[in-house]
Nucleic acid binder design. Structure first.
Lengths: 225, 225
DNA sequence: CGAGTGCTTGAGGGAAGTCAAGATTGGTGG
DNA sequence: CCACCAATCTTGACTTCCCTCAAGCACTCG
């Protein structure tokens, strides 16, 4: 049990105050630490063993979006709900403590760092959502997810007082080739999927760059997760 | 130009000190802000437009690993070298300032936050490396990358005084099915690739869980990036 | 108006997925 | 200690989804 692995998030001087609230846990292989969409009130540092973080689609396709080895942290400051299922891949020992105590400690310090940290935490989550897409989704689901992402961004920026609008028009910021690079597809496959979604009535293409989504809920049903 | 988008990393009270060193840039579509593996001394906040972050393999396969929209940050505190190519996907305006000034400001505050922040920055980088794998690599490259990751972890933990050992034995922490879930493959494909790598002499399988890599350099040549 | 760039569509092929037996292995209890 | 059982892994045969290659169309811009 080396120095780096024992709740090493905190510098020496502050460690004691967290250590008081921390305790070491031993988990058998297969033990579930958190499930996708459920609260997780702990932050933990892996001392020994391997922990896997997974996301999955409704129909059971699974993607491991991260592995935590010794000295890696698991848990998510500033968010109550876990976006992944967290499970011991091997027998694991880890050192865990309450999330709120940890957040409080962070907040006592600079706001700038906290802001940046939150941004990066969101980026990690977003990158892992994309890993599920790249690892497990079909071409149709990938394109639908991409359009939906832009549609939701558009809807949020409009900020309608009264609920979400059900139809949106979006401007694609990328070429077909770039969309392919983002989705792990070729530009031809992207183009074919746009055509299919148009034939299905999910999209209207005003021109190659402007996409009208008449029913966002319909699109949501195609993203596959 | 809304409040949230103007160098909004910093809380109101501290913003001024960075704003002094910041300046607004306008970039045409296609402008390159950083290339993979080259230094990037700036942090910037996107004000308008879309910026894409890409990684690519030596043979030209490309993967967009992130998009930055208005109010998103680009650049990497605490690392001099950019791990991605950063390019304007549309015409872009952004507000940028020197990375070192920014880091200095962060360091004046809590060490705990800095530690956690660095960990998360590394996680983002790791997730994006994996996105390249999931989006663009062949089954053989994926399995080779996974084994190499474990091999390097093992080599680093051994900490040989005299250089890297060229042969390693590693213990797989995951089943074939789990490796498949990590690599975006089926368990059958993973198994077939293990067999192929064994036939090629890149691996020896002591049992299903213990893998001996006689020549790590050889394996490195198969990861495809 | 022609060239360039980006997009669509088609035909054919190939890498990985699916389905289906078996072979190993490791754990458990007789 | 060994035999059995369940879980895990390997291998084969076949299928499928997406990629590759190719041709033609639609804008934009000099």
């Amino acid at each position: 049990v080396r120095d780096i692995s024992i709740c090493s998030v905190l510098p020496r001087t502050q460690r004691a105050s967290v250590a008081k609230n921390s305790h070491t846990q031993h988990l058998a292989k297969g033990a579930v630490i958190a499930t996708e969409g459920q609260p997780l009130g702990q932050i933990a540092s892996v001392v020994e063993g391997v922990v896997k973080l997974t996301k999955s689609t409704r129909d059971g396709r699974q993607q491991i979006v991260g592995l935590a080895f010794a000295a890696d942290l698991i848990g998510r400051p500033f968010a109550n709900i876990s976006k992944y299922r967290i499970e011991a891949a091997t027998d694991v020992s880890m050192c865990s403590f309450p999330r709120q105590r940890f957040e409080q400690l962070l907040s006592e310090h600079g706001k700038a760092e906290e802001f940046l940290l939150k941004a990066k935490l969101d980026e990690v989550d977003a990158a892992r959502d994309w890993m599920l897409l790249l690892g497990r989704k079909s071409a149709e689901e990938r394109v639908a997810t991409f359009i939906l992402m832009l549609a939701e961004r558009e809807v949020n920026s409009i900020r309608h007082g009264a609920g979400r609008p059900n139809a949106v028009t979006i401007e694609l910021p990328l070429t077909r080739a770039e969309i392919g690079d983002y989705l792990g597809l070729t530009l031809e496959t992207v183009s074919r999927q746009f055509s299919r979604l148009r034939e299905m009535g999910v999209l209207n293409l005003d021109d190659h760059r402007r996409v009208h989504v008449p029913d966002v809920a319909r699109l949501t049903g195609l993203v596959g997760d």
